[in-house]
Write a protein that binds this DNA or RNA. Structure first.
Lengths: 156, 156
DNA sequence: TTGCTCCTCACGTCACGTGAGGTGGC
DNA sequence: TTGCTCCTCACGTCACGTGAGGTGGC
C-alpha cells in the first residue's frame, strides 16, 4: 500500500465508491471515459483517491441539479486550472444562476402540466359521469375502476 | 382528390402538420414507426387525415405532460378498442393521476435543486468576498465578472 | 432544367444499462 | 478449484437530429 509520513493514503475501489454514492460501476467508468475522473491503475483495476472521490461528489451534485456531464466537465476543468479558485468560483456562480433560471422555467412547465392534467381529469370525469357513473373512481380506487370497466356490463 | 357527399375530405401533408405543431417531419415519421400514427399513402408520400391530426395533437399533449411514447400509444390503443370510450376514459384518468403524482415529485426535486444552487452561490460568494471582492458580481453582470477574472491582476 | 417537397436508410446524441467473455488474486 | 471483483468491448435504450442520396410532379 502507498503511504506518506501521515500514514497510508486512503484509496477506494470502484465498488466502494459506487456503493457509497448509489451509482453503478459502469457510471464511474463512463465518467472516466468523458474525462471527468482519472483514477490511477493498479494492474488493470482502477484506484480512486480522496480527490477522485471529491470530484465524483461534485459530479453527482451537478447532475442532481440538472447540469450535463460536459457542463460539469467545464466547471471541473476551470477548478483545476485556477490556483486560487477565484475565477472558478465566479464562473460557477454565473453558471449556477443560469441553471437556477432554467430550473425555474422547468418548474413553471411542470405546474402548467399538472394543471393541464387536472383539468383533463375533471373533464373526463364529467363526461364519464353521464355515460357510465359506475366507472367513476371511488376515493382513488382506480384499480377497481379498471377491473370493473373491463367486465361485461349487466344486461337488463 | 378524394371526396364525400360533404365535399372534399380534408387532408394534410407531413410539412403542413409539422409546421402547424412546431415539430419536425422526422418526428412525425418516428411516431409512425412507433405505431402512434398510420397515415395513408399517395404514392410514396404520406397523407394525413383529420383523425391523424387529432391523434398527433393528443401525442404532443401527452409528451408535454411527460408521458413516454409507449404510454401514449397504450392510451391511444385503448381509445380505439373502446367504442363508447368509457373504459378508455376511466383508464386515462387513472394514468393522469399517476402522472400528476410523478410531476409533483419532480417539482419538489426541482425546488430542492434550486435551493441547493442558491445555497452554493451564497457560500461561494462569501468565500469570494474574502479573496477577490473585485470579482463579485455587480447587479447580475456576470459576463463582466468573467472577463475581469481572466485578465491579469494589477501588480502593486 | 431548376426547385420544391417528399422519401428511405443509417449513423449520431445523451447517459448510461446490460450482457458477453475474460483476467487476477485471495 | 470455486468465488469474488475487476476488466474491456459492444450493442440496446429513448426520442429524435442530421446528413446522404434518390424520387416525383409542378
Amino acid at each position: 500500500l502507498p503511504s506518506t509520513a501521515d500514514g497510508p493514503v486512503r484509496t477506494y475501489t470502484i465498488r466502494q465508491l459506487s456503493l457509497e454514492f448509489g451509482v453503478t460501476a459502469r457510471a464511474l467508468r463512463f465518467y472516466e471515459d468523458r474525462g471527468l475522473l482519472r483514477p490511477e491503475r493498479r494492474g488493470q483495476s482502477r484506484v480512486y483517491s480522496v480527490r477522485d472521490r471529491a470530484r465524483l461528489q461534485l459530479i453527482l451534485r451537478g447532475k442532481r441539479v440538472g447540469f450535463s456531464l460536459s457542463e460539469i466537465g467545464d466547471l471541473l476543468d476551470l477548478y483545476d486550472k485556477d490556483d486560487h479558485h477565484a475565477v472558478q468560483m465566479a464562473a460557477s456562480v454565473a453558471q449556477f444562476r443560469r441553471r437556477i433560471t432554467a430550473l425555474e422555467a422547468q418548474k413553471v412547465d411542470i405546474e402548467l402540466s399538472i394543471e393541464d392534467l387536472r383539468a383533463a381529469c375533471a373533464e373526463i370525469e364529467a363526461r364519464l359521469g353521464e355515460v357510465r357513473p359506475d366507472l367513476l373512481p371511488r376515493a382513488g380506487d382506480y384499480d377497481q375502476v379498471l377491473r370493473k370497466g373491463l367486465e361485461p356490463r349487466d344486461q337488463p
